[in-house]
Design a protein around this nucleic acid. Structure first.
Lengths: 244, 244
DNA sequence: CTTTGACCGGAATGATGAAATTGGTCATCT
DNA sequence: AGATGACCAATTTCATCATTCCGGTCAAAG
């Protein structure tokens, strides 16, 4: 009972309309996700308690259970929101880039969007133990589906002449995995001072992708590539159960 | 006392010459290293005891201490021997390959030599927990020195026109690290059936290196490159305290 | 109705100590 | 002398129990 907290919005209208209530609820949900994200970055999954999140968000513990079934769903929601934001940002960057349809530009925009997001950046920078005890919660089907989405769009990019045809999708998928995991673990492995800056690294990786995957003669039309990649991002996003 | 064992060579000459004794000792040392290697692969560092090794090698436990100071030195020796063998093999493959001086050929030979070695292959295939409780025993200076060796020879290869000049050594070092760690962790991550075969993977990686690092116009003379790489391997080997 | 935090029980954590294991030594045997 | 394995001390492992912690519930408050 003796828990003074700032109820800044003291119900200006005595009877809030249904819309206003909806909005209130929405805002609170975001606030809780903000709190979860902050603490996820600061303490990791295992060491962050529901109580912590509730306190950080300024709500009661029970309230959180009005929004999510359990702890994993809450943190999944936080990660999914981050992913959705990142994909959305990447989509925008790609749309704004005249050459956004090219493989290496696409990679660059994706990587930059990730690094701009505090949560995903932290993961990328090698603090993979944020997920202590959380990995394995994700359904195996999700991983398989992600691979399917990759395969489908990679093939489309090949058919559009944006990626070399003489490379197998399975190999490409595996090596993309190698690059992603390698980036994370190498960041964890090497000490700060010897690690190149992320700008340098992004640029170098972008060039690697370009030389590795792009054919010498690229199609003059960039819209097809953009469309494919846009579609890709949308499907990745639709795989993420995050309601705006 | 009741420990019957096969003393096949029952000292044909009553007084073995100094040479023969030396040889005997040498052979026994190899046998112990063989045992250590086998058990390292089967059980990992932590779960392999000195007793196990002695039994597997058919010698008394005390005998092992006539050869090495302690447990870590024994297993270091086993790993170092493996590394020396691998570098030696790689050197031979490179020497036999007319194009052995090219970056992507060099990478291929190195990777194949590693995969041919049971111990290092096991590590490469993601069973990095072979080292449970062993990592950290290696002096930090070794890592730093390895980086120096890389840097020096990479620059030499650039000067020889075998590797593009417009890429920084620091970046290249980091990305090589990404590739190595990525290969290990991706192998650990993805399940058998979805993983491409090592032949496919080696070939694909070789091509990636080629496109990423090699200039369009390569020097006609291959001997310079071979010499540099030979030198590289020798220095890596000399960093390893393994006496034939 | 919505929101809350006291409360509950299962699970993680830590302290304790007995028992087993194991790296390394050394008296003994060859 | 060179090789060995019984032996020792130190560490690890395991079982036990007390205590704390925390995800989730729900009766009560607003």
């Amino acid at each position: 009972m003796p828990t003074p907290r700032d109820h800044t919005a003291q119900s200006a209208t005595s009877t809030p309309s249904a819309d206003e209530e909806k909005n209130e609820r929405q805002l609170r949900q975001e606030r809780i996700l903000d709190a979860a994200t902050t603490l996820l970055i600061r303490w990791g999954y295992r060491k962050t308690t529901i109580d912590d999140v509730a306190r950080e968000a300024g709500v009661g513990k029970g309230t959180i259970y009005l929004h999510w079934k359990d702890k994993t769903e809450l943190f999944q929601a936080a990660i999914w929101r981050a992913s959705a934001q990142v994909t959305e940002e990447a989509k925008a960057s790609i749309a704004a880039d005249p050459q956004g349809g090219l493989a290496h530009r696409f990679w660059t925009h994706g990587m930059m969007a990730i690094l701009r997001n505090p949560l995903l950046a932290k993961i990328m920078q090698g603090n993979s133990d944020i997920f202590q005890g959380f990995i394995g919660t994700l359904p195996q089907s999700t991983v398989a589906e992600a691979k399917e989405i990759f395969t489908r769009h990679f093939s489309q990019l090949q058919q559009a002449g944006l990626i070399r045809n003489d490379i197998s999708v399975a190999i490409a998928y595996h090596i993309f995995g190698v690059l992603k995991l390698g980036l994370i673990h190498m960041a964890e492995f090497s000490d700060q001072e010897n690690t190149p800056s992320y700008e340098e690294l992004t640029e170098a990786m972008s060039e690697l992708i370009q030389r590795w995957l792009e054919p010498v003669h690229l199609p003059t039309d960039s819209t097809t590539g953009k469309a494919i990649i846009n579609d890709w991002m949308d499907q990745v996003n639709s795989q993420i159960p995050y309601n705006p």
